[in-house]
């Protein structure tokens, strides 16, 4: 059975599709995590609310488009990185957009 990818955030992993499909019926839906909870997984490295106290760059208050460009480039590999290329694997364009909007709106 072909499975449509979600509009936002995740390139569905095959194993997950299998798990989800097991309980599927046409009208059933799945919730996607809110951007707030995803953003707090970024702050473990980028600092609370995106304000970094150490060597990893801050995200708070950066330009939205600047963040989008960088995240896209990490994902595609155009921008070399020690880790961000790997971190971006499960996120799609919609996810990138929401994360960028979220961090751009934090105060520096």
């Amino acid at each position: 059975m072909p499975v449509k990818p979600p509009a936002h955030f995740f390139l569905i992993a095959v194993s997950l599709v299998m798990i989800f499909a097991a309980s599927a019926s046409a009208e059933e839906t799945i919730a996607v995590p809110k951007v707030g909870i995803i953003a707090t997984t970024c702050t473990t490295c980028h600092g609370e609310d995106g304000r970094s106290p150490g060597s990893i760059p801050s995200l708070a208050g950066k330009g939205r488009q600047d963040i989008i460009d960088k995240l896209r480039a990490f994902k595609s590999g155009d921008r070399p990185s020690t880790i961000m290329g790997r971190i971006m694997v499960p996120f799609d364009e919609g996810g990138i957009d929401e994360l960028a909007t979220y961090f751009a709106a934090r105060t520096k």
């Binding site: 499975v3 449509k4 798990i19 799945i30 951007v35 929401e98």
Partner: peptide
């Protein structure tokens, strides 16, 4: 940000 997506029933999970 709650997306409709085929496949997994949250209520069933709960």
């Amino acid at each position: 940000m709650i997306e409709k997506r085929p496949g997994f029933n949250r209520r069933k999970f709960l």
